[in-house]
Amino acid sequence: MTQNTRTQALSDAGVSIWLDDLSRQRLNSGNLQELIDTRAVVGVTTNPSIFQSAIAGKSDYDEDIARLAGDGKGVEDVVEVLTTDDVRRACDLFEGLYDSTDGYDGRVSIEVDPRLAHDTARTVEQAKRLRGIVGRDNLHIKIPATREGLPAITETIAHGISVNVTLIFSVDRYREVIDAYLSGLERAREAGIDLSTIHSVASFFVSRVDTEIDKRLDDLGADAQALKGKAGVANARVAFGQYLEAFASERFASLEADGAHVQRALWASTGVKNPDYSDTMYVDELVANPTVNTMPEKTLEAVADHSEPFAPLDADAAREAAAVLESVAAAGVDLDDVWEVLESEGVDKFEKAWGELLETVSASIAESTPA
């Protein structure tokens, strides 16, 4: 098979393409391997919504559900087995890539139970548990960047566990995420852990920012309409400026000398929600080296078909983007409220999806259990 020239060009520009989806069907059919071979996909991310979609009404899981129920497993144990089995298989599929890139790519992410988003201690406990169950070095544990998630990120990194920090919306919170990562590395070094074995990405959400801010701009009247569709990209660009600054610091240089890796920015929520916008805008306008762009398959195929990337981001682009956010705020959008709403909604959406997943599997267990 031949790599698509557009997705390969992104890869060559320093953008690691990770698929924002995973299912047993993708694994069994060879579809994921095909995307690796033809779309330059070098990693996978999952979340509760993805697992709910993968398992609901799919026969691929019936046999395992019946077997596990027959063994006396409860619904939460069954869900844990199904999800970690799929993630482990994906990790194994990417093992060669993980080895050939010294752990840089070939990564698969699994999220802690979203009901723990505001429970630091239990988040750390489950991060350790998931790492042990999956048992693969190319695993990332996803931890949300809530206020309570920040110390959990530090603690998990301090134990030598690689982390994908998720649900980041504001640049201020992103700074705190970077600090949590560096603090974790410093503690890991003190504990004698090889820093070169720890990797992390910081997942900065993009399209949800435009969805929320565009709605508020609509309420502000005609004069604000020119700013629609600009805040998501601008916010991410400012975040990349923070990345450049933080990882050029003396603090990181000390850690890097002992083998530490940068925490790459990851652009998440890159599926375009507004049909008036280019369906590749959150890829084309956020090319940067190094970054990760995790795409749903629809976006990935759009990129493969007609992506036209902008020039790579730099500090100047970040400064220009800051002016866009200032204009949005000057128009009357309360950005602090936007970030608070988006974080709360993000946690709620994942909690709801997790609850629906538990209900789906519970119903399957009931169907498989003799009356």
Rank of each mutant, 00 (worst) to 15 (best):
G132A: 15
L195M: 13
S162Y: 09
A117Q: 07
G192E: 04
I153K: 09
Y243K: 07
G184T: 05
V124W: 05
D223Q: 09
L217Q: 06
I161Q: 03
V233N: 00
G232V: 06
R122V: 03
T156P: 02
G160D: 04
H118Q: 13
Q126N: 06
T146M: 11
A188Q: 13
I193E: 03
H159N: 10
K142D: 04
A226L: 12
I157Y: 08
V209S: 04
E190V: 00
R129F: 06
R122L: 10
A236I: 01
F204I: 14
V171N: 15
E190Y: 02
V209T: 09
R136Y: 12
Y181E: 01
I178P: 13
G184Y: 01
A152D: 02
F247C: 12
Q242H: 03
A145L: 06
L220D: 13
D194G: 12
Q126H: 08
H199F: 08
N138R: 09
V233T: 11
S207N: 06
S203L: 01
I157F: 08
K228Q: 14
S183L: 15
A234K: 00
A222V: 15
A234I: 03
E148P: 10
R208H: 03
R187P: 04
R189V: 09
N235Q: 00
F240M: 11
G184A: 05
A180H: 11
I198P: 09
T156Q: 01
L139K: 04
L244S: 12
A158L: 09
K128L: 14
Y174N: 01
E125H: 02
R187T: 14
I213P: 06
R208C: 13
A158K: 10
A191T: 03
V171M: 08
K128E: 15
R189E: 15
A188K: 12
G232T: 09
V163N: 13
H199Y: 04
R237E: 14
A231F: 00
E190H: 11
H159M: 12
H118I: 05
L139Y: 07
S203E: 00
N138P: 08
E212G: 03
V238S: 07
F169Q: 00
Q225A: 12
F169T: 02
R173E: 02
L244R: 15
A191E: 08
T211L: 07
V124C: 05
Y181N: 04
N235D: 05
A158T: 09
G184P: 01
Q126V: 03
G132L: 14
D194N: 15
R129Q: 11
S170H: 00
E148R: 11
L130C: 11
A239R: 12
I198H: 11
T211Y: 02
A121M: 07
L185W: 04
V134W: 07
E155L: 00
E125G: 03
E155Y: 00
H140S: 07
I178V: 15
F247Q: 10
V238E: 11
V163C: 12
A224M: 14
R237K: 15
A234N: 09
E155P: 06
T211P: 03
A236V: 04
A224L: 13
A117R: 05
P144Q: 04
Q126R: 10
L227T: 02
K215C: 02
V177K: 03
V171L: 08
R187S: 14
V209C: 06
L139V: 10
G229W: 00
D219G: 14
H140G: 03
R136L: 12
A222G: 12
A158N: 09
I141N: 08
G241P: 09
V163H: 11
L167G: 02
E245P: 05
